[in-house]
């Protein structure tokens, strides 16, 4: 079943048809979401009532488009706020971890490495509840002993950021480590021989080399944070990030404004996906 082995046209045809069907299966839900963003009906369902842009720009009830839906717009802001913090924290800590695991030698390194990748095998819901239970215990302990009410340890954005950071850091660590492992250490040694301090060598040689991985890790963390649902669900307070707000709308049944929003999300995340893929490709050809 490789091109150099002759196959009957019949077998080839069936195989090709299967692959085609598979890609229809992959594309169907996304295409449907996009198309119904333009349906001139109050519900994202059949029949087709003609095309409209009202679900993007409409401002008269019941045709409230996404650009006039203040609740959803606010939740986009909330998600972006969370995602920026998560990205910043997890890329910084991930870089530290990568240097530690790739460069340093210390006892217990393997155990720490195992622990560092363990968040990947913890279901998101459980990561969420464990952080919820623990932060609540700390908050209660502090309140009982010294009487301070630490509000940020109760469900809310701080906990959402912390919870997402807890597993996204594993991913940034892996991405940055993989690039650092390929770094030619003699370049840094040359800089040191030429009189650079260690900090200078890292800043002018190693970090620029790591840049594609840092950008890749940042894009991935931003998207993973923006789209996270399971961990966020358990830690969310009164400010709902976008996924939570969309989930509530979906449960209630929603207007095609939700399709319009989904279409915009698809365009943005698809674009980011392409950027990161092409960044990766340039890297390998260098």
């Amino acid at each position: 079943m490789i091109p150099s082995i002759p196959q009957s046209r019949y077998a080839k045809g069936i195989y090709g048809a299967y692959v085609t069907l598979f890609f229809i299966y992959l594309a169907a839900p996304l295409v449907v979401v996009g198309v119904f963003a333009f349906n001139d009906s109050l519900f994202p369902s059949m029949p087709w009532e003609g095309a409209t842009l009202a679900w993007f720009f409409g401002d008269k009830a019941p045709y409230v488009g996404i650009f006039h839906d203040s609740a959803l717009l606010r939740s986009i802001g909330t998600s972006a706020f969370v995602a920026v913090w998560v990205t910043l924290l997890s890329v910084i800590v991930g870089t530290c971890n990568a240097f530690l695991f790739e460069r340093a030698k210390f006892p217990g390194k393997n155990l720490l490495y195992m622990l560092a990748i363990s968040p990947l095998v913890i279901p998101g819901v459980i990561l969420g509840i464990s952080i919820l239970v623990f932060s609540n215990a700390i908050a209660n302990g502090i309140e009982d002993s010294i009487g301070w009410d630490l509000d940020f340890l109760r469900p809310g954005l701080f906990l959402v950021i912390i919870g997402q950071f807890a597993f996204i850091t594993t991913i940034t660590t892996l991405v940055i480590s993989a690039r650092l492992r390929k770094f030619d250490i003699t370049l840094e040694e040359a800089a040191l021989n030429l009189g650079a301090t260690r900090a200078d060598a890292i800043r002018t040689i190693t970090i620029p080399y790591l840049k594609p991985a840092l950008i890749g890790a940042a894009i991935v963390s931003f998207l993973m944070s923006f789209e996270n649902f399971n961990t966020t669900l358990m830690l969310v307070g009164s400010d709902a990030p976008l996924t939570i707000a969309m989930f509530d709308r979906l449960k209630q049944g929603s207007t095609p404004a939700l399709n319009a929003l989904s279409l915009l999300l698809m365009v943005v995340s698809g674009g980011l996906a392409l950027i990161s893929v092409f960044a990766q490709r340039d890297r390998s050809s260098k």
């Binding site: 992959l26 998207l223 969309m246």
Partner: peptide, 12 residues
């Protein structure tokens, strides 16, 4: 398709 949120895919 997997860069798009699971929520959007399920909605589809």
């Amino acid at each position: 398709p997997f860069w798009v949120s699971e929520l959007v895919r399920t909605f589809g």
